[in-house]
């Protein structure tokens, strides 16, 4: 069998902008623009980027919450780009998602037991007794006491709610889980607990994760590969180790250099501060050429043509015309 659980080829998701009485299409928001990914079984791929860079749209497109504008998604060797509702429902047994905000992703009027049972009911799994058994199993897997089953979400803390979110995603024994910033609403002490749990679950059930985040220091501890996204495209794709030791793209370098760290040792591991001017441009009015050139301190004339995602000397891939030049400069300094 194929070693890749998920392959994404040239994925595009454009949202039309409509104006006027006849809702004439006047342009596109290019939320995801030609993204290709490969995800190995049992591994974690992190997608990092600022808000508005299209991370969540990418995840939702892969989950087939949206119809794609263009491109192809292969899941477990099968093409799932255009499959119908019925097959899609079946597919959802294998791919699940953990949402960002544990408070709004749980129905406040349902007991935890009902929340965890919902996916089993939707997929007509077993009878009441076997479902209850499974629900109890799930709550043990996420290390919560069984009496929580008869409580409502509001009586749980943020970390506990997120555990319920994870348990719900695990209910159908999926192979692949999308984690959409699962810890961004939590305190660090709780975040560490959730990340440890996710790592254990991955080993136990041989899960594959697509981890969406904006926290680069978390990625270092959790992922195997990283894709850095900027305005709908991947600007750097690398394994974790290389990304932190040899970041190539100026955007990645600037992101890394702005991590607030807690010790001098770590500070010395970061690249020199690269001041970015301005903020991420609107995806409805994208800069031509290299999308980053409006904020890049190294930008030159050549940056008005769009660069390709090319392999670097460290085995990572980056999208920048000036990689070699920038690196030479650094050695010179």
């Amino acid at each position: 069998m194929d070693n890749y659980i998920l392959q994404v080829e040239n994925l595009k998701k454009y949202f039309p902008i409509k104006k006027g009485f006849f809702k004439k299409k006047v342009g596109d928001v290019k939320a995801v623009d030609e993204i290709s990914l490969k995800l190995e079984r049992g591994k974690t791929l992190a997608i990092v980027g600022e808000s508005g860079s299209g991370k969540t749209t990418l995840a939702k497109s892969i989950m087939r919450f949206y119809d794609l504008t263009e491109g192809k998604i292969l899941f477990d060797g099968k093409d799932i780009t255009t499959i119908n509702e019925q097959k899609l429902k079946k597919l959802k047994q294998d791919m699940q998602m953990v949402h960002q905000d544990p408070t709004t992703s749980l129905n406040p009027r349902k007991k935890i037991k009902d929340i965890l049972e919902a996916p089993l009911l939707i997929h007509n799994m077993g009878d009441a007794a076997s479902r209850l058994k499974r629900v109890k199993e799930l709550i043990n897997i996420v290390e919560l006491p069984e009496e929580f089953l008869y409580r409502y979400p509001h009586s749980l803390s943020g970390g506990q709610k997120q555990r319920i979110g994870i348990a719900r995603a695990l209910a159908l024994n999926p192979k692949f889980i999308v984690l959409d910033e699962p810890t961004s609403a939590l305190d660090v002490s709780v975040q560490a607990k959730i990340i440890t749990l996710l790592k254990d679950l991955q080993k136990k059930f041989n899960l594959t994760y697509l981890f969406i985040t904006h926290d680069l220091s978390l990625v270092r501890n959790f992922a195997d590969d990283v894709g850095v996204m900027y305005l709908g495209s991947i600007v750097e794709y690398s394994d974790v180790e290389t990304l932190y030791t040899h970041p190539q793209n100026p955007y990645t370098q600037s992101l890394l250099s702005s991590i607030p760290v807690v010790s001098d040792d770590e500070q010395s591991m970061l690249p020199k501060k690269i001041p970015l001017t301005g903020e991420i441009p609107s995806p409805s009015n994208m800069p031509t050429g290299c999308k980053f050139h409006t904020r890049c301190p190294f930008a030159e004339d050549i940056c008005l043509t769009s660069p390709a995602l090319l392999e670097t000397e460290y085995g990572s891939f980056t999208r920048c015309h000036l990689v070699e030049k920038i690196n030479k400069q650094k050695i010179g300094v």
Binding site: V188, A192, K193, R220, V240, V262
Partner: peptide
Amino acid sequence: IPKLNGQMGDG
């Protein structure tokens, strides 16, 4: 706090 050297406590 997740550290850049890949170390993180248990919370």
